[in-house]
Amino acid sequence: MGKKIDEDQVRKVAKLARLELCEQEVEDFAGQLSAIIGYVEKMNELDTEDVEPLAHCLPVSNVLREDIAGESLGTEAALANAPQWDGDFFKVPKILDGGGGA
């Protein structure tokens, strides 16, 4: 049986997740991830024809709060754990192109 997740897929996912893997790890994870997918595939043995897809695993909905502003951390505390800062700002390597945004 071929692997459900091949090594190229592992490399791609690792890249997207900013993980650096050595070749041995790529091979190991391909095996492990394939095993996990295979295990989950056992579900296919069940008849889910009349079962609504589940959007959330808790039988809870509508947890909302009123729109009232409260205290924030403040700049000093916000920056306290930052590896680098510049004045009131977090300092990061130069971003060249646009992108980002919501």
Binding site: D86, F89, K91, P93, I95, A102
Partner: peptide, 19 residues
């Protein structure tokens, strides 16, 4: 959805982030 913070690129050799 939620908005992101703001990047500022005016500082020279690095960028600044305001969240």
């Amino acid at each position: 959805e939620e908005d992101a913070g703001k990047n500022l690129h005016t500082a020279g050799s690095f960028s600044q982030v305001d969240l």
